[in-house]
Design a protein around this nucleic acid. Structure first.
Lengths: 348, 348
DNA sequence: GCGACATGAGAAAGCGCTCTCTAGGGCCTC
DNA sequence: GAGGCCCTAGAGAGCGCTTTCTCATGTCGC
């Protein structure tokens, strides 16, 4: 009925049907389906025949009612209402993780937070036994889902450490954001740049804060040559291109003499480069620019190609899934930091 | 056990527990949970109390075993092995559809085809009663999943008409690809351009073929002013930026005199513009360029901003979901074509 | 050649929920 | 004031599967 009235959508054959056709008991069919070794070759063949002629497919719902597992994993994506689409890095991470789950025989169930009462629905979904565990990507500090995630009755892995992860009995994998920022800014210092600005990401995401931290750490470390850090060199973006443009314009107004910019994302960097060029400044001659992410679609195609901090997207997804699987089989929550590296192209 | 040994992951309270605490029968609790009207206010209150103190959450698995519905919908994305990430249009469509499903109280289950035996796993998943219906996006002609999709025991909606949709008992929504191409190329003709080239998308996707069709139709219609269509003006891309660059270089070699390009995607157009400018050609003065998709992140940020065919992403998702819901409640499969429009910016 | 033992297959008890069917009041009607 | 109704709540039968427990074989050792 829920399936409507179309032909071909009828009820599917059950275990009993197969059992009857094969002249065995339900239990035996179940054993065959689940590849238990305790079935004689002849009986097994008979059952397999029956399965084939009936086109039997086990009902996963009935199965998971008794096995208490669904082989599905929630993929929760914190989405600041309108912006998830805009972030190619996040898209890639989602897909990498999702593929990784598929390879592990787990069905990824994508859950986007963002709508009105979404977080309630999602929390209920997660708590309701629909999935064996969850992987959470890109939660924002203000996400109303966050409290619920802390007390979920299933294992949870965070991609990117959540705020206050010290109290969460969940694992997390993160890219070494601080180190990435450090590499980038050190590179700029090494290039002889003296007035190094930065455009941050949305500071309600921890990654943005840590990239800013890394930037500030380098500046502090080179206080002798660079002088006291100038707050005017910090402009706030939001990881987007438009945000990068806006911030770059601000910076240019405030500190026309700047000679380098460390942007919190490739998109931001691309926006910044656009503004710089339109302002008649040459990249990298007048202003060196470094991004963060190393997204093929962007970094390699800016003019000039972008020097940027490479984030290991596939490895990220892989580790996330591996760690969750460990937790699912009783292991302790994993905390891990993935290395980054600087990819030097033409922009710095 | 599947949940490991961590505290707090224990068994959840069942309907019986609630019933016992409230001093009523299971049936009554079920009625309260499902908001049946047949429960007296006093009893209802008692049950609600019990639910609250126990923190009861219904087990969806058990429920759907009897109701025969899961309230989940499969979101199948045909992924040419490595490339889904690269297509921002597809990402947006996925997310729009997914959000739309969420708003309709249906849980989107993202299924990416692409891996080795993925199609078998996915077909089994879809046929296995995990979801009530499916929405299929971006299937390629050679996708091994396609045959399986044709004979699924559940309602299916295709986003973008699949190859040979005439024989599929499924619905489809598509953007009017031909018309979009027609608008674009007519615009170029109207601008007085005479040697109008095109860069196609992957021709194993129907959208690419139809955009090419539209292009050819306009050229044929203007044969009197444009002369006989020149096959050298058609170069093959794959919707990506790199593909656009490659194709543009070919075109420039083959037909240096071209004065306009219709690209099958914004990404492709962006690539083409890059090549043109590096070749010392001005856009749009020397060569006018039109894209397809109208993705904010790209179209508005090329230099010059891109004239392009706008695809209604949100409406696409909305209609797709609405049509599937209709089928789920017994309606006939919907076939529909969404209108497109040309967005004129600076590149043509 | 008899008991001890694997080994393969069946019977049956659920998993947690929904939903029909049934029973018991209270209230209305005549 | 008795019969009939409606309304509420309980009993119980499954949904399709897994899994223990049990039993009937066939096999081996001594």
């Amino acid at each position: 009925m829920a399936n409507g009235a179309r032909s071909g959508w009828g009820p599917r054959p059950t275990l009993d049907a197969v059992a009857e056709l094969a002249g065995v008991s339900r239990a035996t069919v179940s054993r065959v389906v689940n590849e238990s070794s305790k079935v004689g070759p002849e009986v097994r063949a008979r059952v397999e025949d029956a399965i084939r002629t009936l086109g039997y497919v086990p009902n996963p719902v009935a199965r998971s009612l008794v096995t208490r597992r669904t082989d599905a994993v929630g993929l929760v994506v914190g989405e600041p209402s309108n912006m998830v689409m805009t972030d190619p890095y996040l898209s890639r991470l989602i897909l990498a993780t999702s593929r990784e789950l598929g390879d592990a025989g787990r069905q990824p169930v994508l859950l986007l937070t963002g709508g009105e009462n979404d977080h309630a629905r999602i929390a209920a979904y997660l708590a309701g036994g629909h999935v064996d565990g969850a992987i959470v990507l890109s939660v924002h500090r203000t996400d109303p889902l966050l409290p619920a995630l802390r007390s979920l009755p299933i294992p949870v892995m965070f991609g990117g450490r959540p705020w206050g992860d010290d109290v969460v009995a969940a694992g997390s994998i993160d890219v070494d954001q601080r180190e990435g920022a450090r590499l980038a800014v050190e590179h700029l210092v090494g290039l002889g740049r003296r007035r190094i600005a930065t455009i941050t990401g949305s500071l309600d995401q921890r990654a943005a804060v840590e990239r800013l931290d890394g930037y500030q750490a380098v500046l502090a470390a080179h206080r002798d040559t660079l002088g006291d850090p100038d707050p005017a060199l910090i402009a706030h973006g939001d990881f987007t291109r438009a945000g990068g443009e806006r911030a770059m314009r601000e910076l240019l107004t405030r500190v026309p003499s700047l000679d380098a910019v460390f942007a919190a994302s490739d998109l931001t960097a691309a926006g910044a480069i656009g503004v710089l060029r339109r302002a008649g400044l040459r990249v990298p001659e007048d202003v060196a620019v470094i991004g963060f992410d190393d997204l093929e679609e962007i970094a390699a195609w800016t003019e000039p190609p972008l020097t940027t901090v490479h984030q290991p997207v596939s490895a990220f997804g892989r580790r996330l899934v591996a760690a969750l699987l460990e937790m699912l089989s009783g292991g302790e929550p994993v905390r891990e930091m993935l290395p980054v590296r600087l990819v030097t192209r033409a922009s710095a």
